[in-house]
Structures are given as structure tokens and as C-alpha cells.
């Protein structure tokens, strides 16, 4: 399987990374170089093997339903590029 220019444009859009048109073709080559190399995974017989999700073998930790956090809006917005009245600001969204 290899990617073409349209695929690269589509995944760049999905990943929200601007990709100038002149970078599309080189990116196609770079990605295909990598995908060609990972193709060797197709040699492996994975029949009946469950995909691994975590190496950790224990029960999921759980918290009690207690409020222990929040009340710190100042710190939450401290690193934001643009705020007003402790709201984050983004260019207007049209729904």
C-alpha cells in the first residue's frame, strides 16, 4: 500500500497541519519510503493473535467521587495566547 498526493493532502487536513502544495510531492516520497519499509509486517502470521493494548497487567485504577481539583482559572488560562475574562479566545466559529 502506498500513499498518493490526494491522500497526503487529506491526512494533512485531518491532522490540521498546513502543507504547502510544493511540500506534498516530497512528503509522498518520504511517507512511502517509510510505508514500504513497514510492509515487512505483512510477513508475520498474526492469525489468532489479540492486538496488545497495554503491557500493564492490573485492574484499572479508580478514584472516589470527590472534588479535589479546579478553582484555579488563573492558572488554567495563564499560558494561553489570547484570553478575556478567563475565557480562551478563538476566531469566531460558525456552526
Amino acid at each position: 500500500m502506498s500513499v498518493d498526493k490526494d491522500t497526503v493532502r487529506r491526512i494533512a487536513k485531518l491532522a490540521r497541519i498546513a502543507l504547502p502544495e510544493e511540500r506534498v510531492e516530497p512528503m509522498v516520497r518520504e511517507l512511502n519510503g517509510i510505508f514500504d519499509w513497514v510492509q515487512q509486517l505483512n510477513e508475520v502470521d498474526v492469525a489468532g493473535v489479540a492486538p496488545m493494548t497495554s503491557v500493564v497487567e492490573q485492574r484499572l485504577k479508580m478514584r472516589d467521587d470527590v472534588v479535589t481539583d479546579g478553582g484555579n482559572a488563573e492558572a488554567v488560562v495563564a499560558n494561553a495566547p489570547l484570553t478575556e475574562d478567563r475565557f480562551f479566545l478563538v476566531p469566531k466559529v460558525v456552526e
Binding site: D69, G70, G71, N72, A73, V76, R86, F87
Partner: peptide, 18 residues
């Protein structure tokens, strides 16, 4: 996260870093 779910609080006041 351990932040409160109460309705109608000041903006971003019931927000943990998570």
C-alpha cells in the same frame, strides 16, 4: 478528573489541568 461538575460556575473555574 477531580474538578467539580456543578452547573453555572465562573468560566474555567471548574477545570483541572487534565
Amino acid at each position: 478528573s477531580g474538578a467539580s461538575t456543578a452547573f453555572g460556575a465562573e468560566p474555567n473555574s471548574q477545570v483541572s489541568f487534565v
